[in-house]
Design a protein around this nucleic acid. Structure first.
Length: 890
RNA sequence: GGGCGCUUAGCUCAGCGGGAGAGCACUCGGUUUACACCCGAGCGGUCGUUGGUUCGAUCCCAACAGCGCCCACCA
């Protein structure tokens, strides 16, 4: 044992010596130096050549434009906890950091800067624009990386990746070419989601369906004067009528049977269009007749294909009407909607208007405007076989989804995925590796192939959807397509931690690509080795204290950095962990984090107490322990096992809650108080030595268990307590069955029950904590000294008069001299309450025991427990009645 | 329109067939030498409603009401 207290690691400003150890934990003086030390010692750097089993997490790459928001901070806390625990468990641990190039977000940002300079990307030109983006990235990108250090993320910075770096470019090209050659990537003219603001196509996943107030206009096609055939159709997008090529009715609809096959005049254009029959039409809706615009509506596109209709595009890439020879040519789509409607009205063709008409319209997720279905030549991934494989991997258990209730959402996606449009009319991103020759040749190139030269050859101008490269993340970051040592060692990754809100976007794409690309690499020893991750752990979203989604516009969002400043990183992390039930949202508030800060301080002071009292972690823990020492070691070992169980199911909230209560209620409130007796001057040196060793053991174990959640305070305290190098590389505790001691646990439970009884009695009597009451115990069978200390009871002295007697649990009793302070009324009230509770328990359990059906059908252990409760209630009642009879009548 | 989930103390949430729990908030009492970012004692709930299954239901089933999220081409 040492007679001075070692300096907590990182606390350079604090002088050595327990007496000078501050009574409050000051995170700011500890965090940054500790993180620096961890980096210097290379604790986070993984070794692909290690013989240890691997544990891998790849970070969901944040956008290069992003900074750390509360959602990242939360997600990183969970990933870091898993990573740190795995490292302590002896895994070769890799948590790989990186960023996503975020095509659209970067475009928005840089184009805004260009606009401020009075220019735009088209004036600048492609190469200069891309150059400009790289400049921006070097200067301003990646703010989040520094913030991750504050959070304590134990990522391997030597392996940091970016989705546009050289290696990932090779991966993207390789993947594209493989899919292309397998016929899983194709180019086709399809009806796509077009964003006029971005002048680019978007995938289905980038379209938000929002309910808007529009108008539903019913109008007459054909003759208005009865001179020829006519039919009434309804639409919310009147302007699209300029591109109509048919009117469709249900084949069995008697109203229109005679009209099928005839031609009607399309107003404003003079074109004649056919009335056709198609099963898709719902006769119940509207008039039962549908205008068909194959080039601007997904359903109509399908109808058009079935009937071989012409597809007339009437809109350009910025959403302006293209209808040569009409007055609407060049008009914005929304202006045209009004203009067309008014022109039709003049012709007496409007037969009904419903306004407002509530319906859903797809909007561009990024730029916000309504998307326009538009006919366009684009690249697609044929997802069906890939998505099936992705679904099967979960169905057959190669990949586990946690919590399992989330699996249906996953299948809903894999089972219904449409082909994925991967080309974007943008400049920042992975350019499609396809060249077109002068004679219509198409050549797809891998990363090591030279682009064709010669006149007329040009590369496809489009870039790939950001999610294409993100889908390769779990293996591209490890060196794929090269068969690197990293890939061999660390793939498949162990667990993917992500929010349920992006399950569909990203997870399914990684599954599809991982299973496809890595199929050849899965060995016989591990046939499931192609999966990108063994487990998908889904978490919820961080919400405010009322369960509301955080948003800047609502003003309820929280800056995690400000909270780290005010309360410390560990407090923030512990708050997240404490709220993290699998798959459920996480409400947090300043009250929560205040409590977590207090908890860190509690640990600080518990360890300070231990250091001041010579706690030791040296040498073997005695095999035979007694009393409180045996109890707390037993409890520690139970807690270790429980924590391990919870980690298996990502039950962070339960881990945090368990450790909080173990540390605070059991270690601090009881064990430290009981230990004070063994450590007091009156105790023998051998007793004190054992307690000092147990004290060290318990705190050592507790700090190890807490380290994944609260790395800084635990590291700081643990190095001071043990003199060890670092908790980061310390071993994770092992639960030892031989340390479980049911008898010691029962002893302390009894002690606690008795102490609580006495406290309640004294508190009910209005006895002030400072008052020292003389007491005489009988039948205690041990722990008298501890009970006296906890309650500040004195030995009965000369003139002791027992003014009160109290029956304590399990046959013990105490006489107290309360001549100084007795509050009879308060005690009556308290005993009455207790009596009512005991009587209720007696009645409830008695009724069950009197029920033959219960006795006949209930499980024996249930009956036994009810019987025991019944007897205990009866004993309580007797004790209370006895106490009542002794109390003076008021 | 389809799918998933939620409704338990003032707030946020655990529990999910046999004794209603936690944190915070609240009330009362405290200068106990680790900690007032503390200690002790307390108050507070017909577990959304109505039926059913069961010896027994907060927990299982059904219906209803309210809320949330995801998916979706009803013109």
């Amino acid at each position: 044992m040492t007679d001075t207290v070692p300096l907590p690691a990182g606390a350079q400003t604090q002088p050595a010596g327990g007496a000078e150890l501050p009574s409050q934990y000051v995170p700011a003086s500890v965090e940054a130096p500790l993180y620096e030390r961890w980096l210097q010692r290379g604790y986070f750097t993984a070794d692909a050549g290690s013989g240890k089993p691997p544990f891998t997490i790849v970070i969901p790459p944040p956008n290069v434009t992003g900074s750390l928001h509360i959602g990242h901070a939360f997600e990183h806390t969970l990933m870091d906890a898993l990573t740190r625990r795995a490292r302590m468990q002896g895994f070769e641990t890799l948590w790989l950091p990186g960023m996503d190039h975020a095509s659209i977000a970067v475009h928005a940002l840089v184009e805004r800067a260009l606009a401020a300079e009075g220019t735009n990307r088209r004036e600048l030109g492609r190469d200069a624009f891309v150059e400009r983006v790289w400049q921006w990235k070097e200067q301003h990108g990646g703010a989040i990386l520094g913030q991750m250090r504050r959070l304590g993320d134990s990522v391997d910075w030597s392996r940091e990746r970016f989705t546009m770096d050289e290696g990932l470019c090779r991966a993207v090209q390789t993947m594209f070419k493989r899919l292309y050659e397998d016929g899983l990537i194709y180019r086709a003219e399809r009806l796509v989601n077009w964003s006029p603001a971005l002048r680019s196509v978007l995938s289905d996943a980038e379209v938000d369906h929002r309910e808007v107030e529009g108008e539903l206009i019913s109008m007459t096609y054909g003759s208005v004067d009865g001179s020829g055939p006519s039919i009434v159709v309804a639409t919310t997008r009147v302007e699209t009528m300029l591109g109509d090529t048919a009117v469709a009715v249900h084949p069995a609809d008697p109203r229109y049977r005679d009209l099928i096959g005839s031609l009607v005049e399309l107003p404003l254009t003079g074109r004649l269009i056919p009335i056709i029959a198609d099963e898709h039409v719902d006769p119940e809706f509207g008039t039962g007749a549908v205008k068909v615009t194959p080039a601007h509506d997904p359903n109509d596109f399908e109808i058009g294909r079935r009937h071989g209709l012409a597809m007339i595009s009437i809109m350009d890439e910025e959403g302006r009407i293209e209808a040569t020879g009409t007055e609407f040519d060049g008009m914005d789509r929304f202006a045209a909607r009004v203009a067309v409607r008014e022109r039709l009205r003049e012709q007496g063709r409007i037969v009904a208007e419903r306004r407002p008409y509530l319906h859903t319209v797809g909007h561009s997720e990024r730029s916000g405007e309504p998307i326009e279905p538009r006919l366009s030549l684009q690249w697609f991934v044929k997802v069906e076989p890939l998505a099936k494989a992705a679904g099967d991997a979960v169905r057959d258990g190669r990949v586990r989804i946690s919590p399992p209730e989330m699996a249906p959402r996953y299948f809903a996606w894999t089972d219904n995925l449409h082909d994925w449009c991967i080309s974007r009319q943008l400049w920042w991103g992975h350019r499609i590796p396809v060249w077109y020759g002068p004679d219509g040749e198409v050549r797809c190139l891998g990363p090591d192939e030279q682009p064709p030269t010669g006149p007329g050859w040009r590369q496809d101008p489009d870039v790939l959807d950001t999610w294409f490269s993100a889908g390769l993340w779990p293996f591209s970051t490890l060196g794929w397509p090269e068969r690197t040592a990293d890939l061999a060692k660390f793939y498949p990754t162990s667990v993917l931690v992500t929010g349920y809100d992006i399950l569909f976007f990203w997870v399914v794409r990684m599954m599809m690509f991982g299973l496809y690309a890595m199929a050849d690499d899965s060995s016989e020893a591990d046939p499931s080795g192609a999966v990108p991750f063994r487990t998908i752990a889904l978490h919820g979203m961080v919400r405010d204290q009322f369960g509301k989604k955080m948003s800047k516009s609502k003003g309820n969002s929280v800056d995690p950095l400000a909270w780290m400043d005010a309360y410390g990183t560990d407090a923030l992390r512990f708050t997240f962990a404490r709220g993290a039930n699998p798959g459920a949202d996480v409400p947090i508030s300043e009250d929560n984090i205040g409590g977590a800060r207090n908890f860190c301080n509690k640990l600080w002071n518990a360890t300070r107490f231990a250091l001041l009292n010579g706690a030791s972690t040296e040498g073997e823990l005695p095999q035979r322990l007694t009393g409180a020492d045996a109890w707390i070691i037993s409890r520690l070992n139970r807690v270790i096992a429980e924590v391990d169980g919870y980690y298996a199911d990502f039950e962070f909230a339960k881990i945090a809650d368990l450790l909080y209560h173990f540390a605070w209620d059991e270690v601090c409130d009881w064990y430290l108080e009981l230990a004070k007796v063994s450590l007091a001057p009156g105790s023998t040196e051998s007793t004190a030595a054992v307690t000092r060793r147990v004290l060290g053991e318990v705190l050592d174990g507790l700090l190890r268990l807490l380290h994944p959640l609260t790395p800084y305070v635990t590291e700081s305290l643990w190095t001071a307590l043990t003199g060890g190098e670092s908790l980061v590389i310390a071993a994770w505790p092992q639960a030892e069955e031989s340390r479980l001691d049911k008898a010691a646990e029962d002893d302390i439970l009894l002690l606690q029950a008795r102490v609580v009884q006495l406290r309640q009695f004294l508190s009910g009597q209005g006895v002030k904590p400072a008052q020292r009451i003389p007491a005489r115990f009988t039948g205690l069978g041990g722990y008298e000294q501890q009970i006296r200390r906890l309650l500040r009871l004195t030995e009965p002295a000369e003139g002791f008069t027992a003014t009160a007697q109290l029956e304590l649990s399990d046959g013990a009793a105490v006489e107290l001299d309360l001549s100084t302070a007795v509050d009879v009324a308060a005690e009556w009230a308290r005993l009455d309450r207790d009596r009512a509770a005991a009587a209720k328990e007696l009645e409830q359990t008695g009724r069950k025991l009197a029920n033959d059906a219960f006795l006949a059908k209930a499980k024996p252990e249930v009956i036994d427990s009810v019987r025991a409760r019944n007897e205990a209630a009866a004993a309580d009642l007797r004790r209370i009645d006895e106490a009542l009879s002794r109390l003076p009548q008021s």
